[in-house]
Amino acid sequence: MQNSAFSIHFVVNSLVTLLHYVPITLLITALSICLGLVLGLFVTIGQLVPNRVLNGLSIGFIALMRGTPMLLLLLLIYYGLPLLLQSFAIDISGWNQVVFAILALSINISAYFSETMRSAYSAISADQYEAGLSVGMSNKRIISRIIVPQATAIALPNIGNSMISIIKHSSLVYAIGITDIYQQAQTVASSTFGMRQLEVFVAVALIYWMICILVERIIAVIEGRFSYLR
């Protein structure tokens, strides 16, 4: 066992140890997705309203996010935001790193969410709106009963892809000192004195793979629920 090049036994051992750190990854991603959806909605509205300034701001924000590496955004927010707010006499340096991680991830993902939402919204033909009006529905009702359900059905596959990418990006939070699956894997790997590093990272890969497959399945089930609208 000690002298084999690859030990399945050690993969299983690492897997069990690392599973304890799945909740922190899930917590960070779940909260980032929720916050990202809200932020994304605002950015989408900013793009759709007939207001040049808001349109420009939203488009600029999306372009900025698409050109910024996630790691860099995370570090800039972690190191830069407290300093920036300090000059406005707001002290956030005592906040937990997890808050910064969620902030950075959700800001990044909101740009991708808003692209998805905007394209889903524009995919619904104007006839749908007119049909709603013709049967006497109010504006609010048309949006909640006609536009949103159809737009959700169209947006779901892309929302799912963005969720997968946020799960993957969450592995970068090691850079600001959060112990998640990946960071713990580094600790476990270094405790093997260079003997069993490969096994540890294979275990990490398997954990992320399982999480992503699970998320894909859940999205597929929800998509199935919405399929009557397509």
């Binding site: 969450s170 490969l198 890969a205 992320y208």
Partner: peptide
Amino acid sequence: RSVPLIVILYVLCYAVPQLT
């Protein structure tokens, strides 16, 4: 598509030296 880049990076980084 499911595994973070940094994990793939380390798997590949350790795979060849360890397996050989």
